[in-house]
Amino acid sequence: MKNSDLHRQFIRKHRNNKIKILACQIGVLILFLFLWELFARIGIIDDFIMSSPSRIIKMFGALGEQHIFKHIGITVLECILGFTLSTVIGSLIAIALWWSVTLRKILEPYLVVLNSLPKIALGPIIIIWVGAGMKAIVTMAVLICIIVTIISVLNGFLSADEGKILLLQSMGANKFQILIKLILPYSIPNFISVLKINVGLAWVGTIMGEYLVSAAGLGYLIIYGGQVFKLDLVMASTVILCILATLMYLAVAIVEKRINKKRR
């Protein structure tokens, strides 16, 4: 198709706007780092307490000796385990609650209470019941994600069009067929937004769990750094955490794009 000059102009404008926004985004980051470094150098802020970009970079170099990849590996493993377990178990529970209205009504008040309970309060109980270690951390992550998963996935199921259910029933469909043919495929977009929320929550749970019990992992490094006043270590670990969380979010976003392409 031949584009008119007007359309070309429109596209150029659109692209310029995009570049401008990206440039500003990077600019803000650079400005922030620059000011931080500058203030630390001229002594407006104390770089022992506030750290500074250059000290963090130096810390990255030294992290190799701290077995940083072991720490990253452990945290990522805990996070992925928590994320996967809570998504799978939560979805299965949501299916059960969709299936049985009675069960749904019975469990409703419990879900409401558990949802509003700050799960960190269960920390001591978890440690005593499952032991202080990776198990406790994964349990914490699962507890934080699973209630939200159940509630959101179930709401997705229940928002399916009554008319479509009626249509399937009139064809003689049983409950299982309604689940497979309508409810599950219909809920995929909602399910993906649940995944996105869970990525964030799984990180919250994992780091919280590590604060409580761990002997290794990024959460452990942050706590340890805080206790021995090595703020460079705290900052460097936080930066790594930022990168990892972003990567995991992007992974989900890629899955979403794939599915959307298939479904349009």
């Binding site: 009626l166 249509l167 009139s170 064809m171 003689g172 043919k181 309508l182 219909y186 479904r263």
Partner: peptide
Amino acid sequence: RKPNGKVGYMLQRDQLFEW
């Protein structure tokens, strides 16, 4: 006695499955 696929139901909206 119960739905048995003997009727074809057409509703107000077409209810085609978008996916």
